[in-house]
Design a protein around this nucleic acid. Sequence first.
DNA 1: GATGAATGAGCGTTCATTCAT
DNA 2: GATGAATGAACGCTCATTCAT
Lengths: 213, 213, 213, 213
Amino acid sequence: MARKKSDDKRQRILQAAARVFARKGYHGARVSEIARRAEVADGTIYLYFRDKEDILVSLFDEVMREHLKRAHEEIAALGGTREKLLAMARGHLGLLGGNRDLAVVFQVELRHSTKFMERFTASWLQDYFALLTGIVEEGQEEGTLRTDLPLKLVTKSFFGALDEMVTSWILSGRDYDLRELAAPVVELLLNGAAAPRRAGARTALAPVARAAR
Amino acid sequence: MARKKSDDKRQRILQAAARVFARKGYHGARVSEIARRAEVADGTIYLYFRDKEDILVSLFDEVMREHLKRAHEEIAALGGTREKLLAMARGHLGLLGGNRDLAVVFQVELRHSTKFMERFTASWLQDYFALLTGIVEEGQEEGTLRTDLPLKLVTKSFFGALDEMVTSWILSGRDYDLRELAAPVVELLLNGAAAPRRAGARTALAPVARAAR
Amino acid sequence: MARKKSDDKRQRILQAAARVFARKGYHGARVSEIARRAEVADGTIYLYFRDKEDILVSLFDEVMREHLKRAHEEIAALGGTREKLLAMARGHLGLLGGNRDLAVVFQVELRHSTKFMERFTASWLQDYFALLTGIVEEGQEEGTLRTDLPLKLVTKSFFGALDEMVTSWILSGRDYDLRELAAPVVELLLNGAAAPRRAGARTALAPVARAAR
Amino acid sequence: MARKKSDDKRQRILQAAARVFARKGYHGARVSEIARRAEVADGTIYLYFRDKEDILVSLFDEVMREHLKRAHEEIAALGGTREKLLAMARGHLGLLGGNRDLAVVFQVELRHSTKFMERFTASWLQDYFALLTGIVEEGQEEGTLRTDLPLKLVTKSFFGALDEMVTSWILSGRDYDLRELAAPVVELLLNGAAAPRRAGARTALAPVARAAR
DNA sequence: GATGAATGAGCGTTCATTCAT
DNA sequence: GATGAATGAACGCTCATTCAT
């Protein structure tokens, strides 16, 4: 770990970087602006990070390390497929919906290049998907989930839906609560958008859907 | 329209650009490399495009104009919510799955910056969503689709799922047929991943699911 | 050859570089100052030279190519060891004594690093020594020169003496005519600094030599 | 004198500097690398030296002070021009031939810039030449040396020849004994490279030359 | 005396864009 | 229309030096 004494200084740089990357984009961000905002000298940044790219990567690594740790713990403590998926969705949307700068960095800046995306996929996204896969597999074994849909397709669709909620939220410029979308996304994933065949079944689902809103 | 006689030269530039943007990324792409590949002089590019960014934007605009035109026609000619959604999904996955360079440009390079993403959303994505929204609304009116899920949430989830299929396909580096994912994605969207309550209902869905694979 | 149309611009850059390198030293020289003096834009320099180092190397290569060509021709046209050595000395001292900037670059800046010196030795110095060696060998075969002194030692001493004349001239800051030193250096090399004992006393030197061991 | 108690630490720094300067060159040498090798903190160096340049200058000053002291003593104790010149040559070639790092520093790094060379000339080189001049003048007065060659030209040629032997030795990368070149260089300086007029004398010199190799 | 974390000035090079031909 | 030589603004990073401890 590069974390020595002044972990504080390191944190200030990361925070400043999130802000600047979000506002200017990775390429538009000037290292000197990050330094100014972090109230350190330009050179100081290079005592904590190898280069500009390393700042971005570290930002993402540290956030993800922490987030995944929490997610694993939370999921382990919960029972039921729906509850677990809800926790995943709330965690995902809460993490990014709670910090617009971070959200921009995650949704936009980390996807600058295939190189970055590969890195990003290889490191934490893999873990994220492993967690999801575990939940879905368990659901299939329990009989809660269908087994006739490719496992990966389900997890990717779930991730894709959440991801699009975040991107859309960023681009909307509005400030609604992303976490409130967790329940309906999970409901959609589980029960689909199709109307139940019989009128009677409708009622049965209604309470769920209502809650989702 | 900038389309004059030598539309050919313009097309050569766009094609070269797709290749170079895909391989090197927008920032890594050199205008002179695009020129070289298009077999025109550097300066010639500026007779057809305002600047480097305009090349990227034009590339995307022209592809989308064409794609949306086709999609509108196709959807209009089809009946049934599932069929229409399937057509949308096949069109989406087919467009990008058929041209990896284009896919990289759409999934990665167009998302370089919030500025780009906003432009991209404002122009064609809006139209794309309008098309989707029309299908879903029609489905709700027909009674095929639930009305208790926010309309936008359904369309965004559908788009998000397809989008993730493409991104994942690019990053995988493998060459499987993206279009085959259209059916299961639509099935998931419509009926969800949850196992039906009763065994009897299962059978009804089975044939669909089987076909989706 | 990189020499295209505007060989003129290239020459202006080389000339400006000689001046700036001589005044500020290689490391102290700013590329932008060279550009300013050559009346071209900073970027233009990179159309003619790979990088800053390439300017220095090219300067030296072009001067040496020309100089050695002339030297080879001149030597071939002369008869007699002393005459040839005189021509070499006059050429050497004349080249550098005629252009102080060039002299500084050759005596100081080209010796910045072992890397540079090796390059410099490997390219033209080798040719220079080959030329000298030819003259000395010929002298030995003719019986004009002693054969009991290592060939290389003689050529290196000759070169070293000339080289020191130039360095010393630069550091003196005075402007005397370097070429006038050619004749006495050659005389020293050929007949030595020792006073002849007597007219016929060549033999009388033998004991001295013996004592030297 | 900066020589206090911990002269040891100062010496360690100088030694480390010689090594690093020789390997990386003055500009390529990092103060922190010198510090690391000397096993002191970066800041400690500045307790002993004004700046990086002062390390190089001090290195050279201390070596020269010592060397010239020895040379003066040795010369004073010897009789005969040839003997004295031989002692000078052996001292010169022995000093640098015995320590390649030091040789590189003296032949290459000290000649980085005219500023350095002037300093170097002004301080010890002047003394070195004074010593040489004394020997030559004495030789002329005794009648051992010719008086028809400019005094300075003789001393510079001698120095230049020795200097070139060292430079050439460094660049050769080979490890032959530099000191063995002292005798033939002195012989060349004194008697020249020209063959004596009569064949008879030839035989007398031959054994000497053979030994010199 | 000794440390080493912090500083911040300084510069070679790239490349999108222009414009004289 | 087409060319491509020329432009020059822009910036990440290094590293000698300082100074609070």
